[in-house]
Simulated scan of single mutants.
Amino acid sequence: MVLKGQYLERPALIPVGREVMEGVAHRGQVRPPLLVLSPTPEEGGGMDHVIGAELAFAAATAGHATLRFNYRGVGGSQGERGTGAALIDEAEAALTVVLENAQAPTAAVAAMHGSARVALGLRARHSGVAGLCLVSPRGVTPGELTGLGRELLVVVGELDTTLPRAELARAVDAAGGTLEVVEGAGAHLHHALPIVGRQVRAWLKRLSGN
Rank of each mutant, 00 (worst) to 15 (best):
L99Q: 05
R150P: 11
L148H: 13
G157V: 08
A116N: 06
C133P: 00
L159H: 13
H113I: 01
A187S: 14
G147M: 06
V196R: 10
D173T: 15
G184A: 07
W203L: 08
V155A: 04
T146R: 15
H126K: 13
L122G: 12
R150I: 00
L145T: 02
V118S: 02
L152N: 05
L95T: 01
L120D: 04
L99S: 04
V156G: 00
E90H: 02
G121Y: 11
R170F: 06
V109L: 05
R201S: 14
P194F: 11
V196T: 14
V118E: 03
G121P: 04
G176N: 02
C133K: 00
L134A: 08
L207E: 07
R117H: 09
P137V: 00
G197V: 01
H191E: 14
V129G: 02
L99M: 02
T161S: 12
R123S: 12
A91W: 05
T106L: 05
D89Q: 10
L132W: 07
N101P: 00
G177N: 01
V196W: 09
V181R: 01
M112Y: 14
L204A: 05
M112P: 00
M112T: 09
G177R: 06
R125H: 05
V129C: 02
L148F: 03
E92P: 00
L204M: 11
E167A: 15
T178K: 10
G143S: 13
T161E: 14
R201K: 08
Q199I: 13
A175Y: 04
H113E: 14
V118K: 03
E90W: 03
G139D: 14
V156D: 04
P105S: 13
P142H: 03
R125W: 11
G131H: 02
A116Q: 03
E183M: 07
H188D: 13
H188A: 04
A174H: 13
V135F: 07
L168N: 00
V156M: 08
L189M: 11
A175F: 09
V140I: 15
A110V: 08
A187E: 14
A202Q: 14
A124Y: 03
L148A: 09
S115D: 12
E151D: 15
H191R: 15
L204C: 12
G114R: 11
N101T: 10
S136P: 02
E183P: 03
E90R: 00
A171R: 02
H191V: 06
G157S: 10
H126Q: 13
S115Q: 11
G184R: 09
L153E: 04
S127E: 15
G157R: 04
P142W: 08
G149F: 11
A169R: 12
A171M: 10
A110Q: 07
A111K: 07
R138G: 01
T141I: 01
A102G: 06
G176Q: 03
T162E: 15
D160P: 04
D89V: 03
A130H: 04
L207F: 05
A102V: 04
V98F: 12
A102R: 01
A111F: 11
A185C: 12
G149P: 07
V155H: 00
P142Q: 10
A110P: 07
V156S: 06
L163G: 06
A108W: 01
E183D: 11
G131D: 05
R198Q: 14
L179P: 05
N101V: 00
G176Y: 07
V135T: 12
S115F: 09
